[in-house]
Amino acid sequence: MPLSPKAAVKEVQEFSYLVAKAFASVFRRPYYVRDILTQMDLIGVGSLSVIILTGFFTGAVLTLQTSKTLSTFGAVGLIGQLVALSLVRELGPVLASLMVAGRVGSGIASELGSMLVTEQINAMRALGTDPIKKLVVPRILATVAMLPVLTIVADSTGIIGGLTIAVFVLRISSNLYLSRAWDGLSYMDLFGGLLKPLVFGAIVSVVGCRCGLRTYGGTQGVGRSTTQAVVASSIMILVFNLILTRIILVYTR
């Protein structure tokens, strides 16, 4: 259902209010450290397998696809550099974030949505707990902390995936592949590649929490919120990736 301009402005206002309230809550007692660690485990460790598989196969396919083009210029030896740069700068952060949006963002929206429609959020408030502090802040902190780690895992397994194809299919020595990959990367590439997942982590978690906390209409509403969380955070990741890439390129020229 399309949003009316008034509803869209209200949504932006509510979203900003949630972000501001969550940010203010980070510095106020009580600190739910145990909840943060639990969420880090669920989000970080729980997403490892899907991130490893995504990274590995993306690196492998990237190597296969680009090797053909590079071979026309006799530059297959540069494949390590190309794969490493593509993964660290773009594919690693974006793909890891999209996978986390699908797995974690949907989970956050459905969990908070279910809690809302079954009045557990109201019960929490009735028992003297601020749901923003107890539910929203730990999820945001955990996602922001774990997504850069997952991106490093995606980058690493992507390079290993590329190495596997390079060695066993393209018959390039592993030393050449790895040295090209290593030499091709600068610290600014690594900085940019780790800045993005920090922003994307905030997007995935805040959108997930907002969609969950605006759930209405019972269990059907929970399903709707879950879908909205994945779609909205995925699109925002792609839009912010363009903006961040432009900023990073301007400042690292």
Partner: peptide
């Protein structure tokens, strides 16, 4: 709210 206890319609226990 410390002075008030509430029993919600569907219990609202934390799953």
């Amino acid at each position: 709210r410390q002075k008030i206890g509430m029993v919600f319609q569907e219990s609202a226990l934390f799953d």
